[in-house]
Design a protein around this nucleic acid. Structure first.
Lengths: 126, 126
DNA sequence: ATACCATGTATATAGTATATATACAGTAAG
DNA sequence: CTTACTGTATATATACTATATACATGGTAT
């Protein structure tokens, strides 16, 4: 499992982990039943504390993405694809809404937003 | 000057203040030379501490939006409209970029983003 | 001048959140 | 049962947000 931490992201470490695990479950890179690296192993790889990986896995368990079994390990829980897609759509909407809010402050026309959207969508493809 | 605080926004109070002051400068509601409510007055109106309003005004001064004069008050500094517009454009781009990033995770097509954008842009008009 | 009252400023303190080291408890294999 | 993995819980350090209180500065009426 690939997790990349950024010090400059502003987001706390445990949140960076939960975000990336969620993304990998959503993309299918992680499927129900798959074992995740143990809290200790992940902590060692990322050079952070076990408590921080625990916090991340713990939160993922609360949200229904994982099952943490004492003595055994951490596993991807059965997922509802439709719910996942719904949740992701809501994230997109939220960011888009924030973009619109900022655009309105600067009185940028809708047309300009569409153009920027095209460029960004195609630019990130590389 | 209208400032509205939200407890549920997640943003710290001082940041809510700086954001809204910046927005009012950008929109022209506040122009260069205009006096802002004194730190004490604003603190009283918002029922928060003077130190928090100070922190907000202080940060706005660091960023070149205000000038705080001991014994006199706080005033809107001369602004460069083009720089302001550039900065605002960058904010929009950033949010839009984040929306695209989330959309790619869920494999949402560009078309769908354009539709959502239209709805959000027109919906917020009310 | 000077007393007053407004302004912005600085110091010390409480509360909250992130991240940590260390010790504790459950599971399975040798 | 010992060993070597797992996940878990407690107490602690650090940083950030917000605060009360006291201090310093500028204008103004007396």
């Amino acid at each position: 499992m690939d997790i990349i931490l950024s010090n400059s992201s502003g987001k706390p470490i445990y949140e960076q982990i939960t975000d990336q695990v969620k993304a990998q479950i959503l993309s299918g890179a992680l499927a129900a039943g798959d074992a995740l690296p143990s809290m200790r192993l992940l902590a060692k790889e990322l050079r952070i504390s076990v408590i921080t990986t625990k916090r991340a896995y713990e939160e993922l368990e609360r949200e229904g993405f994982l099952e943490n079994v004492p003595g055994k390990g951490c596993f991807v829980a059965p997922q509802n694809p439709e719910l996942l897609r719904e949740a992701q759509l809501r994230k997109v909407e939220e960011k888009l809404s924030q973009a619109v809010e900022e655009a309105r402050k600067g009185a940028f026309p809708l047309e300009e937003l569409h153009q920027m959207l095209d460029i960004l969508y195609k630019g990130d493809e590389l």
